[in-house]
C-alpha cells in the first residue's frame, strides 16, 4: 500500500530514535551489571527489548507502505559515567521520543492515515510509561540519596 505524504519520513525518524534507544539501554544495562547493580540492569535491559519490539513493528509497517526502513541512521547514543547521569540521559531520550510521536500522530490525523496513527498511539503509551519510570527513579534518588538507591539495586 502506498504511504500518504510525509508518513514514511516520520516512521523512519521514529525508527532512528528506537534504534538509538535499543543501543543506549543495552550498553547501559551491561554497565550497570558490571558495576554490580543487577536489579537496575535487568530493568534497563527489558526496556531495550521493548524498544526492539517497537523497531520491529516500525520496520514491518514501513515495508507495508512500500518504503525502505533506514537501518543506517543512528542518533547520538547517550551514555553517562555513573547511574544518575545515565538515568537523566535516558529520561531526555524518552521525552524526545514522546515529542516526536506527538508530532507524528498529529500529522497522521491531518493526512488521514489512521492505521499508522494507531501504531504511533500504541507506542506513545509505552514511551510515556518509560518517561514515568525514569522520573520516578530520579525522584527516588533525590529522596533517599544515591547510596541508598544503589544499595537497593545490588540484588
Amino acid at each position: 500500500m502506498r504511504a500518504k505524504e510525509g508518513v514514511l519520513d516520520l516512521l523512519n525518524a521514529m525508527l532512528t530514535i528506537e534504534l538509538t534507544a535499543i543501543n543506549q539501554y543495552f550498553v547501559q544495562a551491561a554497565m550497570f551489571r558490571a558495576w554490580g547493580y543487577d536489579r537496575l540492569a535487568e530493568h534497563v535491559r527489558a526496556l531495550s527489548l521493548d524498544e526492539m519490539k517497537d523497531a520491529a513493528e516500525l520496520i514491518d509497517h514501513i515495508l507495508y507502505l512500500e518504503g525502505i526502513p533506514n537501518m543506517q541512521r543512528l542518533g547520538r547514543v547517550a551514555v553517562g559515567e555513573n547511574v544518575p547521569e545515565c538515568l537523566q540521559l535516558d529520561l531526555e531520550t524518552e521525552r524526545e521520543a514522546v515529542q516526536t510521536l506527538v508530532g507524528a500522530i498529529t500529522h497522521c490525523t491531518q493526512v488521514g492515515d489512521f492505521t499508522t496513527r494507531k501504531k504511533f498511539e500504541a507506542m506513545i503509551e509505552d514511551e510515556e510509561t518509560h518517561v514515568d519510570w525514569f522520573e520516578t527513579q530520579l525522584d527516588t534518588i533525590g529522596q533517599v540519596g544515591i547510596e541508598n538507591y544503589l544499595a537497593q539495586q545490588i540484588h
Binding site: V79, E81, E85
Partner: peptide, 12 residues
C-alpha cells in the same frame, strides 16, 4: 557523560 563513544572520551 561520554561525549564520544568511539574514542571513549568523557567530559573530564
Amino acid at each position: 557523560m561520554y561525549v564520544c563513544l568511539c574514542r571513549g572520551v568523557t567530559e573530564a
